[in-house]
């Protein structure tokens, strides 16, 4: 089973996104490098808008992740509520 990954900047704005990913993907593995965070998950990684909003208490547009995104792998599916990376869709 292959991993998908997402890399985000290690910034204040990205922190709730990172937290939400770790909460919603129990198999997530986090690696810190200077200035960035890489998260690997087997097969499928999901980012949920609601989870981020629950952490910050503010409305969040999923497209805002573009501001913090560094890199990713896998196929992408995005709608208003979820952003999903996966292999073999």
């Amino acid at each position: 089973m292959s991993d998908v990954f997402i890399a985000l900047q290690d910034t204040d704005e990205a922190r709730p996104i990172i937290e939400a990913i770790l909460a919603d993907n129990p198999k997530a593995r986090l690696t810190h490098s200077p200035a960035m965070v890489k998260i690997d998950v087997p097969q499928r990684l999901v980012i949920r808008r609601r989870s981020i909003e629950e952490i910050t208490g503010l409305p969040f547009d999923l497209q805002r992740i573009h501001v913090s995104l560094i890199s990713l792998s896998g196929h992408i599916e995005e709608d208003d509520d979820e952003f999903v990376l996966s292999w073999k869709r």
Binding site: A7, S33, P34, A35, M36, K38, I70, S71
Partner: peptide
């Protein structure tokens, strides 16, 4: 970009 930019930060 990843190792290089992280390297720049370092």
């Amino acid at each position: 970009f990843l190792p290089f930019m992280s390297g720049a930060a370092y």
